[in-house]
């Protein structure tokens, strides 16, 4: 089996401690949480950090799912399995359960974390699309304090995020707006594989049951998660209908930039971007309608 190169190891006991360690150890230090992105890269010697700062002991501090009336707060150390199994989260953001069902596999979900997934910034990664669709913000903490970065600014490019050296992503905040719901769909070649294409959609209805807002995030069709503001603009104020989903799907297909690789042809991925955009918007609408029906009457 391939094995990592030599590395030094330290355990952080608090967020501040971790930030301090990162600052002291320098640019060659990396955080390790679940390890399911970093350790395989280290084994293949594609990543060769000199120091690892283990933040698994921060699970007590950063592993939480808090569903409030206007906001969901997810600790960055929340593990995939916890996101999958949380009923309160599924009630307000069903997209998480949709996505977590198809992320990697059960043993990996037992270790992998929300923060690790987002910070890996793989263009095919699922939770980035989920958070994009939900208009989430990322809370980044450093020695100088805390800053909040919207999802659209979080990804700087493939495998590159707004989290600077000696900073930690500590929390993801998701606004809860009335009349909304969400859905996720992914096509993969086999269970546990990365997405050929995946789409996350969130949609909000106003009191007249027309579309107040909608957001779509696509995975695996560009250098990083693709947010489609054109879809949001096109759908706002529209009646929910097959025609609306068609319109959105068309925009998604033409706006994305997939490349041909062993997961599929660019044409096929473009087709999927449209198809999955239609499907997730339709499901999100159906869910919003069910929930809305209860809350407005």
């Amino acid at each position: 089996m391939q094995v990592p190169a030599p590395v030094e190891y330290a355990r952080a006991i608090s967020v501040e401690h971790a930030i301090g360690l990162l600052g002291r150890l320098g640019e060659e230090a990396r955080l390790i949480a679940g390890g399911h992105s970093l350790l395989p890269m280290m084994k293949l010697r594609l990543a060769n950090p000199e120091y690892l700062v283990d933040i698994n002991d921060l699970h007590a501090e950063l592993g939480y799912i808090e569903v409030g009336p206007t906001e969901v707060r997810l600790g960055a150390m929340t593990r995939h399995r916890e996101l999958l199994e949380s009923d309160p989260l599924a009630a307000v953001c069903p997209i998480f359960r949709d996505a977590e069902r198809v992320i990697a596999d059960p043993p990996v979900r037992n270790r992998g974390t929300l923060g690790g997934a987002l910070c890996q910034a793989d263009p095919s990664e699922d939770l980035s699309s989920v958070c994009t669709a939900l208009d989430a913000s990322c809370v980044i903490q450093g020695a100088d304090g805390v800053r909040v970065v919207p999802m659209d600014d979080f990804h700087r490019g493939p495998y590159e995020t707004a989290v600077g050296h000696a900073e930690i992503l500590t929390e993801v905040r998701i606004p809860i707006r009335p009349g909304g719901s969400s859905a996720y769909a992914k096509v993969d070649r086999r269970a546990g594989d990365w997405a050929v294409v995946a789409a996350g959609a969130a949609l909000w209805l106003d009191e007249h049951a027309t579309i107040a807002d909608a957001r779509v995030g696509l995975a695996a069709v560009g250098p990083h998660t693709t947010h489609l503001p054109e879809v949001s603009r096109a759908l706002r104020g529209r009646e929910p209908s097959e025609a609306a989903w068609e319109l959105a799907g068309g925009i998604a297909a033409s706006a994305c930039r997939p490349v041909t690789d062993s997961r599929g042809s660019a044409d096929y991925k473009r087709h999927l971007a449209g198809e999955l955009t239609r499907r997730t918007l339709r499901t999100a609408w159906e869910r919003a309608r069910e929930r809305g029906g209860a809350s407005w009457r």
Binding site: G264, S265, D267, Y268, K269
Partner: peptide, 11 residues
């Protein structure tokens, strides 16, 4: 017969 190949065949 990956999804992509099947789709290409359908086209």
């Amino acid at each position: 017969l990956t999804p992509s190949r099947v789709w290409e065949a359908m086209q």
